[in-house]
Simulated assay, not measured.
Amino acid sequence: MAKIAFLFPGQGAQHIGMGKVIASRFPAARQLYDRASEILGFDLASVCFDGPAERLDTTIVSQPALFVSSLAALEMLRAEKPEVVDGCAMAAGLSLGEYTALVFAGAMSFEDGLRVVQRRGEAMQQAADANPSSMVSALLLNPEQVAKVRDDAASAGQIWVANYLCPGNTVLSGDKPACARAAELIEQAGGSARVLTVAGAFHTPLMASACGQLEEALRTVSIQSPRIPVISNVDAKLHDGPERIREILIRQVTQPVLWEECVRTLLSQGCDQFYEVGPGKVLKSLMKRIDRKVDCQTVNDD
């Protein structure tokens, strides 16, 4: 019998139209958008379904939008294949997606999770506005080559490794001049550079000013031990209690995302059937690079 794991996407997977078909077909999904709009103070469904892209792509909007749209996709799966949802044994989420995974696992309520995600997006946007910064993917390079790019680009400014996504896909994050220099060095090394459309240097010390606001938000909500194991981005280990969850989520803002290691933890625990629940197919693509033999299905209306 398959051991099922759910994967929830992070910022960057958003696109205009996400969730529109699901919300029209499944009342439980539509209700999530309606409840979210009351909490957020604006019509989230309208932005997700119709844009404009300039607003949807902002950190303040994209984070709650992806959180809600992923949980809406989960409601579609629950209606169509309840045995899959009931049979899910473990979960993980990429950056923002870790919050979605924790809500699915019962560690936080939908409402509390959304309030924290909203505060997280606001705090990260403020930190990004205070430090002109960027992120760039280093594709087709090995870890040693990426380390050299980072070291050499540091002559132009502060820069760190922010995401270890899969073999041949590592994300660097830091000051804009350093990221621009890194992009040049990646190409010179025979790789491919892709500048990400994000507000700033996420998962680096440049986000430190966001931690206080996030800690305050996490202290105002009730957190329970997850009913199923959720893997942490920070150390690729299982979350194991409310205080540890708070600590890890705060650290996640300034520390690199160990996504490849998270997936390998799930595989080592016997998970052999994966579902990417939410907009896009990024996590399925990463899975192919981590272990192409593993089946990963997408759950969305793309």
Rank of each mutant, 00 (worst) to 15 (best):
A2T: 15
K3Y: 02
K3L: 09
I4M: 05
A5F: 01
P9E: 01
H15P: 04
I16N: 01
I16A: 06
M18W: 04
K20D: 06
K20H: 15
V21D: 14
P27E: 14
L32C: 06
D34R: 14
R35P: 05
I39A: 10
D43G: 09
S46V: 06
C48G: 05
C48A: 06
I60H: 13
V61E: 02
S70E: 08
L74G: 12
R78I: 11
R78C: 11
K81H: 15
P82E: 09
D86T: 13
C88N: 04
L96R: 07
E98G: 04
Y99R: 07
V103H: 03
A105P: 00
A107S: 14
M108K: 11
G113T: 02
L114Y: 03
R119H: 12
E122M: 11
Q125P: 08
A128H: 01
M135I: 12
S137E: 07
A138M: 12
L139M: 12
L139A: 07
L140W: 13
N142D: 15
E144C: 06
V146Q: 05
D152H: 12
A156R: 11
G157K: 08
W160N: 06
W160G: 02
L165T: 08
S173M: 12
S173L: 08
P177R: 07
P177M: 03
R181T: 13
A189F: 01
V195L: 10
V195N: 07
T197S: 15
A199N: 01
H203C: 01
P205S: 04
S209I: 05
Q213L: 14
Q213P: 09
L218H: 02
V221Y: 10
S222A: 15
I223L: 14
I223S: 02
R227N: 10
I228K: 02
I231G: 05
N233Q: 09
V234T: 11
D235N: 14
D235P: 03
G241T: 10
P242Y: 08
I245E: 00
I248P: 02
I250T: 13
V253C: 10
T254L: 05
L258I: 12
E260R: 09
C262M: 10
R264A: 01
S268W: 11
Q269H: 14
I290P: 00
I290T: 07
D291H: 14
